[in-house]
Design a protein around this nucleic acid. Sequence first.
DNA 1: TGCCAGGCTGATA
DNA 2: TATCAGCCTGGC
Length: 272
Amino acid sequence: MITKEIPYFDIFQICNSGQCFRMQQTGDDTCQVIAGEYNLKIKQEGSRCTFFCTEEEFESFWEDYFDLQTDYGAYRDKINPKDSYLYQAAEFGKGIRILKQDLWEMIVSFLISQQNNIPRIRRCIQNICQQYGKSVKTEEGDTFYTFPKPESLAVLGEDDLKSCNLGYRSKYVVRTARMISNGEVSLEEIEKMSYKKAKEELLKLFGVGEKVADCICLFALHHLEAFPMDTHMIQALEHHYKRGFPKRRYQGFQGVMQQYIFYWELFGLKNG
DNA sequence: TGCCAGGCTGATA
DNA sequence: TATCAGCCTGGC
């Protein structure tokens, strides 16, 4: 267990920001995240966060996973003070960070995300993990499931994941798993590529289009210049940036601004 | 009951 | 090159 003072870090904002489907609020001040072989409980009171893991695990994995070394205040300081819309969106979502998640898991997660809603995406992923992942016992005696490897899904029939509630997305996941498993597309190579090259490569995968590729670039590869355009973003930008979003001003970290806008559109407007 | 949700593919013109 | 139907399924 390790307790830290972390400014501008809000576990619930991250839970709801739609970038991570295996991080969930479990109580008034707690949440649970599953990543790789790890299952972490976090408790947050103000800027005081308690991570229920060893210091070694925190330093070798979670610190980087949550991008805790980066000063997000510096990104917000670059916001045009005359842009009151972006300013208020960034103020509202100032606890958001862009996580560094597993590439394969993000590919599958965002393949499933199309024409879908967050609770159902979570259920789909949970079903896949339970059926094809590895079960792991925690020290407390609880069981959780890891995310299955591409090879485990590549051997399935194209419709087999319909039983996990994926619907027509089943064949996207299975065919993509095959492309990776047979070496047609290399995850290791994509991880070394620039944003432009990585996106180009991801677009070769069956079921991956512009929006999904950008989400993968942002949430797995940490290419902060990726700017996913979904229906919410299209509407928000049409409404607030008639002459286009000033991406040049935020060159290199537009993705952070995208998250502030996205989170504001989904939660800020509704809650005042 | 019908419509739509955090898109994409493949057919058609 | 652009447009559009069709796709699963659950919630409203």
